[in-house]
Amino acid sequence: MSLTVEIRFTLNGSPTRAAVPPGLTALAMLRDIVGLTGTKYGCGEGECGACTILVDGLSVNSCLMFAVECDGRAITTVEGLAADPANDRLRDAFVEEGGVQCGFCTPGMIVQSKYLLSQHPHPSHEQIRRGLEGNLCRCTGYKKIIEAVAKAAEGTP
């Protein structure tokens, strides 16, 4: 078996320790070691966005990040967003606007939308479309996802 490196980081607000092989991706650590399967494998090469997480508030394709790089950082996954009532508006908007079909891209879309709204609290439709450019969806045709993000932004102070 591979040697492991011990890392410490904040995961969804809680201090966390993990022993990870140096070649392991952050995605595989989250899914296989920590057991948070909300973050999805879609392509493994940073093209589809299904594995999007927040690292110190920035959106990152976790398939392209080594697990060891999480050391000392604050990691937020879709489960972390779901646990915080401040994000209910975003989740509800996806549900109520029909932004979810098969749902496989949805965790990545939600995390990316959270990031987008942190950068542009009152985004234009164009900013939303550009902001979701790196997240693929095969079911919805994106329109309802864009509308969901616009709705989530409504009423934001």
Partner: peptide, 17 residues
């Protein structure tokens, strides 16, 4: 709204993967 959408949007849905 799709009945299973809230679970999916919370990252709780367990696919075969």
């Amino acid at each position: 709204p799709k009945m299973d959408a809230p679970e999916k949007a919370a990252g709780k849905t367990r696919y075969v993967q």
